[in-house]
Design a protein around this nucleic acid. Structure first.
Length: 269
DNA sequence: CTGGTCACCTGGAAGC
DNA sequence: TGCTTCCAGGTGACCA
């Protein structure tokens, strides 16, 4: 999926163009993505004004009068503006038409979600169980130190656990660990406060740089207004066999859990 | 609780 | 060319 930066870039695009506008029409074509899409949702949304767009982790919350539309992009989802009434392809599961602007949800793998929530959206189990926002002040080395105390899971696996800290996926976990000079296999609880300080800084810097670059580090990601930056900025992700940009040692790939990790065996200890 | 694995789904690339 | 296999941005569920 889009990791945090891609979702945040999407959020800003939607906020800039759609907040305050009335949803004229919605077309929901998939009966279910990761979860069932509520029947009758399209009709229920008609005529409602979009009040705000928030992000929590990799979830987007579109606030309408009377409820929130919760959107998750899964592994392969994207939200883009398309020409009004542009023909829908096989994986175009939803269209939200706001006057001249039409927002389209495309998600080939359908790991995403489209959920309607009335009342406090943050009490929904999916949101209530989420960890800390990595760009918030609450995400500090001191906090991380106690959160990881005694944990023997690899630090990279821990960083990707959304119940601990949200928004860091496979790409940014690898990139942040490279920036911090930490071996992704290190037991999470074994890192000193000083090293965690470096890691926290690296994560914030990496995410912020990606947001600034327009979000995209994915070859087929494109924000609401077009293509973002390309993967040229990746230091290690997807670069197995290539030289480390810092020391020229060959970058290695390994499997952690069900994911591929890329790292420099010399720079990362 | 913790850590590890599986499943969900489709498409593209690589291998034969 | 065509079939098979592997891999991909996430994360909830399940098991020992």
């Amino acid at each position: 999926m889009p990791e945090l930066p891609e979702v945040e870039v999407t959020r800003r695009g939607i906020e800039k163009h759609l907040v305050g506008r009335r949803l004229e029409r919605a077309v929901l074509r998939a009966p279910s993505l990761r979860y069932p899409v509520p029947a009758g949702l399209a009709e229920r949304l008609i005529g409602r004004r979009l009040a705000s767009v928030q992000r929590r982790g990799k979830y987007l919350l579109l606030e309408f009068a009377g409820g929130h539309l919760l959107i998750h992009l899964g592994m392969s989802g994207s939200l883009r503006f398309v020409e009004r009434d542009a023909p829908a392809g096989r994986h175009d599961h939803a269209d939200f038409i706001f006057g001249a602007r039409q927002l389209r949800l495309t998600d080939p793998r359908r790991f995403g979600a489209l959920i309607w929530l009335e009342g406090d959206p943050f009490s929904h189990p999916l949101l209530a169980s989420l960890g800390v926002e990595p760009l918030s002040r609450a995400f500090s080395a001191a906090w991380l130190k106690q959160a990881l105390a005694g944990k023997r899971v690899a630090i990279k696996t821990a960083l990707m656990d959304p119940h601990l800290v949200v928004g860091i996926g496979n790409i940014y976990a690898a990139e942040s660990l490279f920036r911090a000079g930490i071996d992704p296999r290190r037991p999470a609880g074994s890192l000193s406060l000083a090293r965690l300080e470096r890691l926290v800084r690296a994560i914030k810097t990496t995410l912020n740089a990606a947001i600034r670059a327009g979000g995209s580090t994915l070859r087929d990601f494109c924000g609401p207004e077009g293509f973002g930056d390309f993967q040229a900025r990746h230091q290690v992700y997807g670069r197995a066999g290539a030289p480390c940009p810092r020391c020229a040692t060959t970058i290695r790939a390994l499997r952690q859990g069900q994911r591929t990790t890329y790292f420099c065996p010399r720079c990362q200890r």
